[in-house]
Nucleic acid binder design. Structure first.
Lengths: 208, 208
DNA sequence: TGACTTTTGTACCGATCGGTCAAATCTCAT
DNA sequence: ATGAGATTTGACCGATCGGTACAAAAGTCA
């Protein structure tokens, strides 16, 4: 099979950036063509389903990345606290320290959510579950683990929105730092006291 | 002056909903016309600047609403804790308990931010400042008040994103409840101990 | 070299885009 | 009632939209 220019997968990153910058509706084929360096012919050769298939492929790639670098480590790594810290770092890198936006979150906000509702939902659901699982392994009871995971995801998404709104990536980094502190609170706790409903007595942390 | 159908201000709410649902690019004049009940002629009579002026007017209206119902009360109300609790309730109502999205946050995410950057930025900046001010009046030191305000805004924006992504308004309400608990922590403190860097000792809350 | 497949460029499609405009309709002071 | 001005209508504009068609180009391999 002749590979003249590229695998389909090679253009997914560029495709992702276009959707991030312009949204689904705003990403016109002409912009896509110019950013990927491919003409309509090639684009429709790779993605017979058009824009929708392109976006779906991008979402699938993002999902795969998060499975490999976030969800799986969160569940597999024995030391839950270490896993949490590592994946937070991975998240910071992924979002370019606040200079890059979450495509899935952005799609969720307007009516293009209806096209990708399933993928959007499972993306966040799996993230939430994996993080809650790690928190539970770190000693938290299931209920507060769930709540803290949810709070974490919201803080990340909100941090991205605000960082972009204020044009201040540092804002996202501060949000991540706060989240990290809260997630790892237990680490300044004596191993003996097994652990708190998150608002329980004691158990404080040093920030960073 | 003939008021056949409406004041310009009368159609702003409908206009806002269209932009919320479809984003700036996705909100076509035909959709706008059909949702406002106005033809292109009327629309361009009210908004000679076209879509951009429509969106700017909507943003201005939103901003005015927040000034009147959130920012000003946060600063004016003597009892800061009461002000915080009241404005949080107002926020919950405004976002229809998570069923409505934040237009300003949504615009911030893609390239339509460039058109409204100033308004987007000052909206969040003023909210953040007003909340931090109230927190300071409630006894927090300036630094932690700033941080807690920022965390609150991020939690709200993130809660809206997630609630919409998961199609679960309750998620936003939970986020608001957590935020409220954290903002009002001091209230279970003895008035004597004036108050904590947010991660300091003691000072806990009931999450009702 | 030549049959064959995959990839690419581009002309073209109907629909819709944001926006313009002249004419029709309406309101109100006179 | 009438005239001036405010408001509305809807046809129309060129540009661009997402998508299709298809032939030329580029690659593979017998």
């Amino acid at each position: 099979m002749p590979k003249v220019v590229a695998e389909r997968a090679d253009i997914l990153p560029a495709l992702g950036e276009v959707f991030r910058e312009h949204g689904f509706e705003g990403a016109s084929l002409s912009i896509i063509g110019e950013r990927t360096g491919l003409g309509k012919g090639s684009l429709y050769h790779f993605f017979p389903g058009g824009k929708e298939e392109m976006a779906a492929a991008v979402l699938a790639e993002i999902d795969a990345w998060f499975v490999a670098h976030i969800f799986t480590p969160l569940r597999a790594e024995k030391d839950a606290a270490r896993a949490i810290a590592q994946t937070l770092k991975a998240v910071e890198d992924y979002f370019k320290s606040g200079r890059r936006v979450c495509l899935i979150g952005a799609l969720a906000l307007n009516d293009s959510r209806d096209l990708f509702g399933k993928q959007i939902k499972t993306y966040f659901a799996r993230w939430n579950d994996a993080l809650a699982d790690a928190l539970a392994r770190a000693g938290r009871d299931r209920k507060s683990a769930k709540a803290l995971a949810e709070e974490t995801l919201a803080a990340i998404q909100g941090g991205l929105v605000l960082a972009r709104a204020m044009n201040d990536p540092a804002l996202f980094q501060r949000a991540l730092a706060r989240v990290k502190a809260r997630l790892l609170e237990e680490h300044s706790c004596p191993k003996s006291k097994p652990l708190p409903p998150w608002r329980g007595k004691g158990c404080f942390l040093r920030l960073d």
